[in-house]
Design a protein around this nucleic acid. Structure first.
Lengths: 193, 193
DNA sequence: GACAATGAGACACTTCTTGTCTTAGTGTCT
DNA sequence: AGACACTAAGACAAGAAGTGTCTCATTGTC
């Protein structure tokens, strides 16, 4: 899963070009120049051009996102606390994500698709891979996956359209939310508190 | 000097397109769509296309800038205070200017040219037209023009490359600066304090 | 010296952008 | 009702820009 340093440079270049100009206006040439790499090399690394490149970018961004999220969950040994931290940090990260906000502003359709339609299954898949191990101790594997999926959908929804009643970036609000709507559903399967 | 509402809409569209994509990436089509007019209409309003349009945009931006600045100088009846407010508000406006900062990030060469080389004479001309009346009571016309020019150059320079010693956005710092470097030079010509 | 990786640039091809023009539709004034 | 000015929509040709593939010379490594 290690990424070639040159690939990484190109992906970073793609990201910053995107932030400057928006997905639709970026050219392969721009990215190659920004990365300090020739166009030929870029095609060698990502045969297929822009589509493949940005697909790869989405993958690494997603993995980075959950890697950072995992970093905030170290040593939490309480189920409720784990879920609260998950949604709070995920929400904070989404709100602070410069790249995401530029994308949402300049290419709303495409970006929303990546968050809610075409891209959602993958988000849930990656979330499950990263987070399932953490809930493994508390729930049967199958219920863990369902929980992660549910929370993923909710975090995204509340991020895109904030509610008047709930603020998932606020620990207290998130805790109340989880106690009320999430925990009861999974209570029966809890193997330990 | 009144601007046609349709022209205004187009200019605003041009501005916001620019903020999103940067000057180099904006097309006439983008601007027309954003303004909700047809391409034909845009060419009728600004024969010459992008060049003419952005030239017009620079003109109205510049006039708006000094119109706002003038608004902050109402009723000031002390020469030193007038100069201090001028440089402070001009500096604050420059720093807060969303459009300018995006332009500086995405098209540094072009934008710097507009601030320091090709565009500077115009800035000074407009500054003189707007500000000369205010210093008219204190200085002979000719010295007023020289003062406005000097301050314009200084504000721009300190904005582009902040100094460790002077912060023209800070009233105290600006006052000291003006007392030290500006007022002495014009003291002899002062017609009233 | 053989080797793999790269930058530079040529290339044919496609797509985008531009500037102009025509047409049909709209609302206004008389 | 009819003349009028104005505009959106879209056709159009010419040119510019972007794409994807190739070749070749260069570089640094084993």
């Amino acid at each position: 899963m290690t990424v070639d340093p040159a690939e990484r440079r190109v992906l970073n270049a793609a990201k910053s070009c995107c932030e400057r100009w928006g997905l639709a206006k970026v050219t392969i040439e721009d990215i190659a120049t920004e990365a300090g790499v020739s166009r030929a090399t870029l095609y060698r690394l990502f045969p297929g051009g822009k589509d493949v490149l940005f697909e790869a970018l989405r993958v690494v961004e997603l993995e980075d996102f959950f890697t950072r999220l995992n970093g905030h969950l170290d040593g939490v040994d309480d189920f409720e606390e784990l879920l609260v931290r998950c949604v709070v940090h995920a929400t904070l990260e989404l709100r602070a994500d410069q790249h995401l906000s530029v994308m949402l502003a300049s290419e709303p359709g495409e970006t929303l698709g990546q968050l809610t339609v075409d891209g959602l299954p993958r988000i849930i898949r990656v979330a499950t891979v990263f987070l399932a191990p953490l809930v493994d101790g508390y729930l049967p594997r199958r219920d863990g996956a369902r929980l992660v999926e549910l929370l993923s959908r909710l975090v995204i929804s509340y991020f895109l359209a904030p509610s008047e009643h709930v603020d998932l970036a606020d620990a207290d609000s998130a805790r109340t939310f989880i106690q009320t709507f999430i925990l009861p559903a999974f209570q029966p399967s809890l193997t330990r508190s």
